[in-house]
Amino acid sequence: MKLQIASHLAIVSVLELAAHPDRQLTVAEIGSKYGVSTHHLAKVMHVLGRAGLVRSVRGAGGGYQFCGNARRTTLLDIIELFEALGPRGLDAGGPGQDTAEAAALEIVLREIDDSVRATLGSITIATMCGLVERSVTERGRAHRTAAIRLHG
C-alpha cells in the first residue's frame, strides 16, 4: 500500500515529537530532517493540532509538542485524519457490477481492506517508538560491523 504524503508526514512528525516529549520542535527542524517544505508540514501540524495530538508552544524556544496518548493513538487514527481508508471495493458503475465474478472479487478486496485496517489500527505510537528504537539499534550494529570489516 502507499500512503499519501500528508499521512506519511503526519506519522513521522508525531513519532519525532513523541520521542522528545520534554522539548518542542519547530516545523523547520522536522522539515529539515525529512527534507520537506515547512509550508507543507505546517498544514499537516495544523490538522494534528485540531485533532488534539500536538500543541504549539509560542515564544522563544517554542515549537510543537506531542500531547496525545501514545499508548492509545494508532497509525489508523492518524492516517484517517488525512485520507479515507474505507472499503476499497469495485468502482461504482464499473464493468459487470452485478455479476458473480464482481462479487467474488469484492470478497477478496474486502479481505485485503480488513487486513490493512487491522494492522494500522493495532499499532500505537508507543509501539512505533519501540520499533524506531529497535531499528536505530540494529542500524548502529550493522554500521559497526561494516566499519570493523572495512578497517579490520
Binding site: 515529537l17 513523541a18 516529549p21 520534554d22 490538522v47 485540531r50 485533532a51 488534539g52 495530538l53 500543541r55 509538542q65 506531542f66 500531547c67 496525545g68 496518548n69 501514545a70 499508548r71 492509545r72 493513538t73 487514527d77 484517517e80 485524519l81 505510537i125 508507543a126
Partner: peptide
C-alpha cells in the same frame, strides 16, 4: 476532522 485526544495541561511526558 475527528478529535482524537484532548490536549492536556500536564507535561507531554505525563500525557503519554
Amino acid at each position: 476532522r475527528p478529535r482524537l485526544a484532548r490536549p492536556r495541561a500536564a507535561s507531554p511526558a505525563g500525557a503519554t
